[in-house]
Write a protein that binds this DNA or RNA. Structure first.
Lengths: 206, 206
DNA sequence: CCAGCAAACTGAACTAAATTCAAGTCAGGA
DNA sequence: TCCTGACTTGAATTTAGTTCAGTTTGCTGG
């Protein structure tokens, strides 16, 4: 049983405020385009104080990514747990994927835009720890979607094929949206959900 | 008729060599992880000489992206032009998408990993020009895939639905591969092609 | 054959942004 | 009260990309 260590934050910790500001800036303006010092200004502290909470700008980014991956996995589990039919579970998972707050949209965008960071080792201790955490979460998410498809194949909801490969394709479709989706754009999240749900079901079904 | 201006390079120009070195490094180690000076070393020139060819490191990156987008679009046109049936044309397009050299794999990877750069304006002249060029190519590619699906719907190969939305989904599947594909990995390009071709046809068909 | 010229190149500064250093301040518990 | 650790800071440092102020190279027309 893996137990997440609850990092106890002091009462006057600004960690959460920094994360929120970072998500907004990284999400809207992009990570490299965002000056680390600007985050400090927004939070109302000196630049140096940031290093009390994060080892580096990249460490903050990786933390945001881990947090979002963790949330996504948790939500997937919650929403698929008590559904019997794998087809219904798949629909529920997709619905849940698009049932997100505006800030979570930004987090998904950040995550998608910087996935490549997870591929190569980081120079510093804490960054590398956070990277490994994120990688593991990605693997877990892939494993769970694969298991869901496999369950559906065993039960006869979907024809039997390479579940892992299919999961990769399905996940790619689900997350690709965050590259172009903008709140107030030409498509609503509801429309996105319908588009992707339909596509996913076609891919895994007969 | 849009006419691409052929930029004539002097005979002792190292532009192509720089691009090749940059593609290899950006592709293998990642853009931010690659030191611009290292590229100069590999090519065998001083760091300063790089600025004779590119206004900045980012300008070089954007150039690589434009080049790859241009190649992809050209290839799509070549390969779909003289195919009658839209279903066959779609298959041909997907096949062509995975008929690439190792260096083109790297270019696609770079492109995918830095798509977000195309979203926000660039500070300098030439970078912005290159960004606009790339954006236009992305739009062109989307338009052509949309037109292909539309053609297939009119001719009765595919059921009639929102062609543009479907094209987005199909393209997402096709290009998502470059995020995880590695030469010598667990899947060959041929297997990838079959996986994605199958998925795409399921998505657009009855 | 040589002047002239543009393409190609260079070492030495410069700059911006992230990061480290060394030294505080503040709040709550013994 | 004072002590401790979480929290904060201004000043200095570092690093990588970039600019400056020219110099070299090889081709071309006279």
């Amino acid at each position: 049983m893996v137990q997440t260590v609850v990092e106890t934050e002091g009462p006057r910790s600004k960690r959460a405020v920094i994360l929120a500001a970072a998500i907004d800036s990284f999400g809207h303006d992009g990570y490299e385009h965002t000056k680390w010092a600007k985050i400090a200004d927004e939070v109302g502290i000196g630049q140096t104080a940031l290093y009390h909470y994060f080892e580096s700008k990249a460490h903050c980014l990786l933390t945001i990514m881990s947090l979002e991956l963790n949330r996504s996995l948790q939500r997937f589990r919650d929403v698929t747990a008590e559904v019997d039919g794998a087809d219904e579970a798949l629909k529920a998972a997709i619905t849940a994927a698009y049932d997100v707050s505006p800030r979570e949209v930004l987090q998904m965008r950040i995550l998608q835009n910087h996935m490549d960071l997870l591929a190569t080792p980081r120079p510093s201790e804490k960054e590398e720890v956070e990277r490994q955490k994120a990688r593991q979460l990605v693997r877990d998410i892939e494993t769970e979607w694969t298991a869901l498809l496999q369950r559906g194949m065993k039960a006869g909801y979907f024809p039997k094929r390479d579940a892992h490969a299919l999961a990769t394709v399905v996940l790619a479709m689900v997350v690709s949206v965050w590259r172009w989706y903008r709140p107030g754009g030409k498509m609503t999240l509801k429309q996105v959900r319908e588009l992707i749900a339909d596509a996913c079901l076609r891919v895994v079904s007969t």
